[in-house]
């Protein structure tokens, strides 16, 4: 079982993830877009770059009414990115199996802190999702699956800490594989497509001379 998870199933997950993400993006771009024929008022390239950068931060006018969401959102995303790219086993893995080069991993205490921040953010966001009338209305099964799979992958990763048991490590790999397989079919895709959506809006706004 663990041979299967670490071997063929891992390869399968990698293929589904890579092909799926590339395929999804290709499918989006293949929808086409008619050229804007109106005379430009500003630069669409600058607009796109600006919006991609600016939307990492909330507009100051919206902070007050969305503060809970903003704080929890940052906690989850920053924590998760720190875990994903700076946890020592991940750095090792990327170096040995994917990139061939590594970078300094974060110390153990920072790992724990990142994990706690990410977990707190994820749980809070999910709770807000099920409690707030707006998100209750918008939420679909996909949103729950994405949240739970992410939680499962994260929690198994933390249980496998110190890699004291091979079984726990395999469980973590399984969690990640399930997440990777589900990823291209879900709105987890926003991790890649936010670039497109922000860019598209920013380009249009930039052309219109609007700082969006």
């Amino acid at each position: 079982m663990s041979d299967f998870i670490l071997g063929p199933f891992w390869n399968f997950a990698v293929i589904v993830f890579t092909a799926g993400v590339v395929g999804r993006i290709a499918m989006i771009l293949m929808c086409g877009l008619s050229k804007d024929l109106a005379a430009a008022r500003g630069s669409s390239v600058k607009g796109a770059a600006g919006t991609i950068a600016r939307r990492f931060f909330p507009r100051k006018e919206t902070i007050r009414s969305n503060r809970f969401h903003i704080i929890a959102g940052y906690m989850f995303h920053i924590g998760l990115l720190a875990l994903l790219f700076f946890a020592a086993p991940h750095v090792q893995f990327l170096k040995n199996h994917l990139l061939g080069f590594g970078w300094p991993a974060m110390p153990h205490w920072a790992f724990i802190l990142s994990a706690e921040i990410a977990f707190a953010g994820l749980i809070l966001l999910w709770l807000r999702r099920v409690m707030h009338p707006v998100t209750r209305l918008l939420t679909r099964l996909d949103d729950h699956l994405a949240a739970w799979l992410t939680f499962f992958a994260m929690v198994t990763g933390c249980l496998a800490l110190f890699e004291s048991f091979a079984g726990l490590r395999v469980l973590h790999v399984l969690g990640v594989e399930l997440l990777m397989i589900y990823f291209p079919f879900s709105n987890l895709m926003h991790a890649f497509t936010f670039f497109l959506s922000r860019g598209a809006s920013g380009a249009r706004a930039g052309r219109h001379g609007v700082k969006a």
Partner: peptide, 10 residues
Amino acid sequence: SASKEAHNLF
């Protein structure tokens, strides 16, 4: 082992 890690983490 898993419980201990989870307990300490959460």
